[in-house]
Amino acid sequence: MTQGRDLRIDFFRGLALIFIFWDHVPHNPLAHFTVRNFGFSDAAEIFVFLAGYAAVLAYGKIARRDGWLVATVKILRRAWVLYVVHIFLLAMLMGIVFFANSHVETRDLVQEMGLHYFLSNPQQALVDELLLRFKPNLMDPLPLYILLLLGLPLVLPMLLRKAEYVVGLSVVLYMLAPWFQWNLAATDGGVWFFNPMAWQLLFILGGAAAIHGQRPLVPDARTLPRQPLFVAAAAYLLIAGLIALSWKWPTVHDAFMPRMLGEWLYPISKTNLSPARLLHFLALAYVIAKLLPNSGWTQNWLARQSCRMGRYSLEVFCLGVLLAPLADMLNALADDALAMQIFSALLGAGLMAVLAAWLDWNKRLNRPAHVAAA
């Protein structure tokens, strides 16, 4: 017997969207409570992994029911929608940042958001935007998702039959990418901040997890403390959390951090998805999956709001991107900085939840009567 819909996926997608929004508002005190403060990974890993999970879960069912060609057409259609959304979102983001910059005199928000390239090279910036090479701050996850989605039809048939083979090839590409410095070109001679050659591994692992989740459950009679893998993952999370917390006090970090461990650990590359980041996320996902089963806790009011945001992740993500510079502007103009920083962070998360609620209500309103009755 297989499991039904796992509401934890929607819940953590919604939570990741809130964390992404909070992490991208400068001087936001609530950003101290996001996952990046307690280990080596952050909300980006959650977003990409669950994107792969959701994509394979959805298009895998289509491929099994209607065939690979139909699934491919639907994937390409979705990628096209994301591409169009990316272009319009970037245009709206630039308008908001230019508006906010005209009201903030103490900082250059255009420079901080990485939009100076557009002012100095507007024509080339428009071309680079169409080629997914012009990616200001906050815009990196969407082009990555577009590219990973475009590659899904190439591996979907094998992923559905022999997922371990695809994961193995993905691991090889992940290991070779930093060694041979494989990445895609960006503006000003740079490269993609999220190297798709490395981050594809998380996407593939998410897809493999989706396939594994559809298999019959095999109960494990051992309690969690007696499961070696759980103990190892929990220990790694504890060590990583202590190291991450020590970064707030450099003298303490330098005093207690072993030199050999520091030479192996640093730098923790986000661009190439450093092994320390990858292992931290996998350990975090495994421990949470064991400690929080897919049961009634997802039915409380707050959890349901996060689940709803996760179901409409594209729309909510876009709103969060647009709200971040506006929240930054409000914080810069406020007299009581701390109060406004907390208020703008909570207001932004609330607006994202309201958007998800409206989209859900609108979807149910437009649902055919016989489907709604069923």
Rank of each mutant, 00 (worst) to 15 (best):
Q3V: 10
R8C: 09
I9R: 04
D10R: 08
D10P: 04
L15V: 02
A16S: 11
I18D: 02
I18T: 00
I18F: 03
W22A: 08
H24N: 06
H24S: 00
V25N: 00
P26K: 04
P26Q: 03
L30F: 11
L30K: 09
L30P: 04
H32P: 00
F33C: 07
N37V: 10
G39C: 07
F40V: 10
A44P: 00
L50G: 01
L50V: 04
L50E: 00
G52N: 02
A58I: 04
A63H: 12
R65Y: 08
R65M: 11
D66C: 09
G67N: 06
V70K: 12
I75M: 14
R78G: 08
V81T: 10
V81F: 07
L82S: 02
L82R: 03
V85S: 02
L89I: 06
L90R: 04
A91F: 07
M92V: 15
G95F: 01
N101E: 12
H103K: 14
L109C: 01
V110Q: 11
Q111D: 13
E112D: 15
Y117Q: 02
S120K: 14
S120R: 15
S120C: 08
A125I: 14
R133W: 12
F134W: 15
N137C: 06
P143C: 10
L144P: 05
L144I: 01
L147R: 10
L152P: 01
P153N: 10
L156T: 06
L160W: 05
V166Q: 02
V167D: 04
G168R: 03
V171E: 02
V172S: 07
L173C: 14
M175P: 00
Q181N: 14
D188C: 04
F193G: 09
A198D: 09
G206P: 06
A208K: 03
Q214W: 11
Q214T: 01
P219I: 04
D220H: 08
T223N: 03
T223M: 07
L224N: 02
L229W: 10
A233C: 15
A233F: 06
G241L: 03
S246W: 05
T251P: 09
T251H: 01
F256V: 03
Y266W: 13
P267G: 07
P275Q: 11
R277V: 10
H280W: 13
L282A: 00
A285P: 08
A285S: 06
A285F: 05
Y286A: 13
Y286K: 11
A289D: 09
K290H: 11
K290A: 13
L291G: 07
S295N: 15
T298S: 02
T298C: 12
C307F: 03
M309S: 05
G310C: 05
L314T: 03
L314N: 05
E315H: 00
V316S: 08
L322R: 10
L322T: 06
L323P: 11
L326E: 00
A327E: 04
D328P: 02
N331Q: 12
A334S: 15
D335F: 13
D336V: 10
D336I: 09
A337Q: 10
Q341S: 14
I342T: 13
F343C: 13
L347C: 05
G348C: 10
A349R: 07
L351Q: 10
V354M: 09
A356N: 03
D360S: 14
D360M: 06
L365S: 07
P368F: 10
P368Q: 12
V371L: 14
V371S: 10
A372G: 11
